[in-house]
């Protein structure tokens, strides 16, 4: 699994969270949905998205003594998702579905209206960094500074990713002036 660039992931003994850190249960409960959505926007596979979100939360838990002290630990978790999603093949989803019947679980899919599904398909067609920036921009209305923190790049770079990504989406989706959804 490609974890290059991932925030520190040393699986050592847990350290107690610093004073004032949020309770991990609250953090996980508040972040899980957004993490799953972000991961799905990048992979298009709900099973893989659930795994990615869970991996990010587990990674946060293992280092909660450090991560819990961050101003925005959710940013850290999104970075884990972004980094790991890039290396996540759809194959894992196929393998899961192939044997999912044994486990009594049907195919896990996200059902969206065609225009919404088309939009996220187009997002996944963007270069990885553009897709990540665009997904964070729309899913969570994140500021450029926040997105830069997640992606680990300069704010100016994020602005470029967003601008190019949005224009590419307009082309892919065939949006022209005067169109309405």
């Amino acid at each position: 699994m490609d974890t290059a660039g991932e925030p520190v992931l040393d699986p050592g003994p847990e350290a107690p969270p610093p004073a004032g850190a949020p309770w991990f249960g609250d953090f996980a409960r508040a972040e899980r949905r957004s993490l799953v959505a972000f991961a799905w926007s990048l992979t298009g596979d709900l099973g893989a998205a659930e795994d990615l979100a869970q991996e990010a939360l587990e990674a946060a838990w293992r280092q909660w003594g450090r991560v819990g002290g961050y101003d925005r630990p959710g940013t850290w978790a999104r970075r884990v998702v972004a980094n790991r999603a890039a290396g996540r093949s759809r194959r894992s989803g196929r393998e899961r579905r192939a044997n999912g019947r044994w486990f009594g679980r049907g195919d896990a899919v996200v059902t969206l209206d065609p225009p919404d599904d088309e939009f996220w398909t187009a997002v996944r067609g963007l270069p990885a960094r553009q897709a990540q920036a665009v997904a964070l921009h729309y899913l969570e209305d994140r500021s450029v500074a926040d997105i830069a923190a997640v992606l680990g790049c300069a704010e100016a770079t994020v602005r470029v990713h967003l601008h190019r990504g949005r224009l590419a989406l307009a082309r892919t989706l065939g949006l022209t002036e005067g169109d309405e959804r």
Partner: peptide
């Protein structure tokens, strides 16, 4: 237009 589409798609996904 992209922003409008994106916000709607984001809400639906969440």
């Amino acid at each position: 237009l992209v922003d409008e589409r994106g916000r709607a798609a984001a809400a639906a996904l969440l």
